[in-house]
Design a binder for these strands. Structure first.
Length: 364
DNA sequence: AATTCGGGGCC
DNA sequence: GGCCCAGAATT
């Protein structure tokens, strides 16, 4: 009977299987480092591994593709070239720099961390995995990335790429979305990673995941330096590994967006400082799809004219907005925390999320 | 352990 | 139309 290698693994005793796995992981080192030396992409944050640059890039790269980060990184480094500049920037200016990049708490945590660094660390990032991990916005992956890339400290940096690559190499069918799987992989890599090449080792694993051992479609095993030690490759399991639990469906929400106009200016307001799109600006809006009659009843005689605007749909990770809108030309003043701004000010000063793009573009 | 945070490119 | 991305914080 022709028993597959994967089946053979299954009949090993747990201890034997662990040993086999560690040997397999150790076998990655030489081909991995050699491949990375020759195939590392030239990226802006790789020009010099200055801790501040590594930090900013790693935060921007959280759940965000390299190509999306590039222009933001350049603009950010020019506007805020160091920790002290970041610590003293205004929140609005910071969020304007982050506008469109998403996950806006990242930006707010950056500023918080910078303030802490100035107050408690002499304005510099600590060369310590544990100290880095205490800073807001820095979890196990980012602490490992900064520690290894900026300071050469031999700690793993396990992101989605590494989870995918290692799962395939070892033939693991464990759910990579489980925190326990991630921490388990960090423990394994910590034991076997080279002490004198942490930066290249971590970046090499990530790089393979990003450009060879890709998630969507078939991985490019023909170009992979790990193909000879890879269980998924040998057993044709790259289609089923990594295993990820399905996401739950997103919630649908109806909104009615109001473009209030008065004397050539339009009303915006600042969102709550927590939750979705925290602290960004928005056009005033109400829950539900409201009728024109309802709009008139809300604004009464102050609404000189009400015009229906096109509908729009915006998809977040976990919520979907179905928007209708009205332009309301006002004759009198209005109660409430509105900022009356010109189109130019929206463009240059205020951070409005892309969810409102269908309405933002109407004012140009 | 599960949920909440964005946005865009690709299949 | 769904998937996934150099994840972390909160509940």
């Amino acid at each position: 009977m022709n028993q597959s290698f994967y089946d053979k693994l299954q009949i090993l005793e747990p201890e034997e299987r662990k040993l086999e796995e560690m040997e397999r992981l150790k076998a990655m080192e030489r081909p991995l480092l050699s491949w990375y030396r020759e195939n590392a992409r030239i990226l802006p944050w790789r020009e010099t591994p200055e801790p501040y640059r590594v930090w900013i890039s790693e935060i921007m790269l959280q759940q965000t593709r390299v190509e999306a980060v590039k222009p933001y990184f350049a603009r950010f480094m020019k506007a805020l070239p160091g920790i002290r500049e970041l610590a003293s920037v205004s929140e609005d200016e910071l969020l304007k720099l982050w506008e469109g990049l998403g996950y806006y708490s990242r930006a707010k945590n950056l500023k918080k961390a910078a303030e802490l660094l100035v107050e408690q660390y002499g304005g510099e990032l600590p060369a310590s995995y544990e100290e880095l991990k205490k800073l807001p916005g820095i979890g196990s992956y980012t602490a490992g990335a900064i520690a290894s890339i900026a300071f050469g400290i031999p700690v793993p940096a396990v992101d989605g790429n590494v989870l995918r690559v290692i799962s395939r190499v070892t033939g693991s069918r464990e759910d990579i979305l489980k925190q326990s799987v991630k921490s388990g992989m960090e423990e394994k890599l910590k034991k076997i990673m080279p002490k004198d090449a942490a930066s290249s080792y971590n970046q090499g694993l990530i790089e393979i995941g990003a450009i060879v051992c890709v998630p969507n479609g078939a991985p490019l095993c023909g170009r992979c330096p790990l193909s000879s030690v890879c269980v998924a490759k040998a057993e044709d399991l790259t289609g089923v590994i990594p295993v990820k639990t399905p996401k739950k469906p997103r919630k649908a929400e109806d909104k009615t967006v109001l473009m209030l106009w008065r004397e050539g200016k339009v009303a915006i307001r600042k969102r709550e400082d927590a939750g979705l799109l925290a602290s960004l600006y928005e056009f005033p809006n109400l829950d539900g799809h409201l009728s024109e009659e309802t709009i008139y009843s809300l604004f009464g005689a102050k609404a000189a004219k009400v015009t229906a605007l096109p509908g729009s749909r915006h998809i977040f990770s976990h919520v979907e907005w179905s928007m209708t809108g009205f332009r309301i030309d006002l004759s009198g003043t209005l109660e409430g925390d509105y900022l009356w701004v010109t189109p130019e000010e929206i463009k240059k000063t205020y951070s409005l999320p892309g969810a409102f793009k269908a309405y933002t573009k109407l004012i140009r």
